[in-house]
Computed example of a mutant assay.
Amino acid sequence: MDVNGSVLEHLSRDECMRLMGSVPVGRIVYTRQALPAVELVNFTLDDGDIIIRTDAGGKLAAATRGAVVAFEADSLDVTGHAGWSVTVVGHATAVTDREDIRRLEQLPLTPWAPGKRDHFVRISSVIVNGRRIEAGQLARGSDARPI
């Protein structure tokens, strides 16, 4: 037990995917010019895969074709010192099948970024890790500090 009574829980794959499906925004980590790059993107889940809609000619689309990437989503309660984080590592592929594209266009995935976003990237998960921290019964106003 921590000083403030917080509990850290490691999450099952099913719980990780359920939580990811509850938020609209995550971070994709990929390689750009041999260095790590992170971008905030909106996404949706499709049969356990992460789907991102982007510009076909953009850096993200080019860098993720057939690449191994990481994807992270979370939800935090800063005041309550609680929240969860899920990280997925997997292969990113461009969706090229016309029927699949038509089906993905019907998903609730409206790009937030301006411009034409008609390219879909699918991230198939290989490794899924998640953690949730729930605040204990820390008395408000006490001098106790988290470690």
Rank of each mutant, 00 (worst) to 15 (best):
130 G>K: 02
60 L>E: 04
111 P>V: 00
92 A>C: 11
78 V>F: 04
139 A>R: 15
95 V>M: 06
5 G>S: 12
40 L>E: 10
52 I>R: 01
10 H>P: 02
132 R>E: 04
85 S>D: 03
9 E>I: 15
116 K>T: 09
33 Q>V: 10
119 H>L: 01
71 F>Q: 02
99 E>D: 09
109 L>F: 11
140 R>D: 11
136 G>K: 05
94 A>C: 06
63 A>S: 15
6 S>R: 13
79 T>S: 13
24 P>T: 08
135 A>C: 08
114 P>W: 08
82 A>Y: 04
135 A>I: 07
134 E>W: 03
77 D>R: 10
130 G>N: 00
18 R>E: 09
23 V>A: 10
107 L>K: 13
18 R>N: 05
10 H>R: 13
134 E>C: 08
62 A>D: 15
101 I>Q: 04
97 D>F: 09
49 D>K: 13
106 Q>N: 07
56 A>Y: 11
50 I>T: 12
51 I>E: 01
118 D>E: 12
144 A>L: 15
21 G>Q: 14
77 D>K: 04
83 G>M: 07
26 G>C: 09
85 S>W: 03
105 E>L: 02
2 D>Q: 12
36 P>G: 08
34 A>D: 12
56 A>P: 14
95 V>Q: 06
119 H>N: 00
100 D>C: 08
45 L>D: 03
120 F>A: 06
70 A>W: 08
58 G>H: 14
145 R>K: 14
53 R>N: 02
7 V>Y: 07
20 M>N: 03
120 F>G: 01
7 V>T: 12
41 V>R: 08
146 P>T: 13
22 S>K: 05
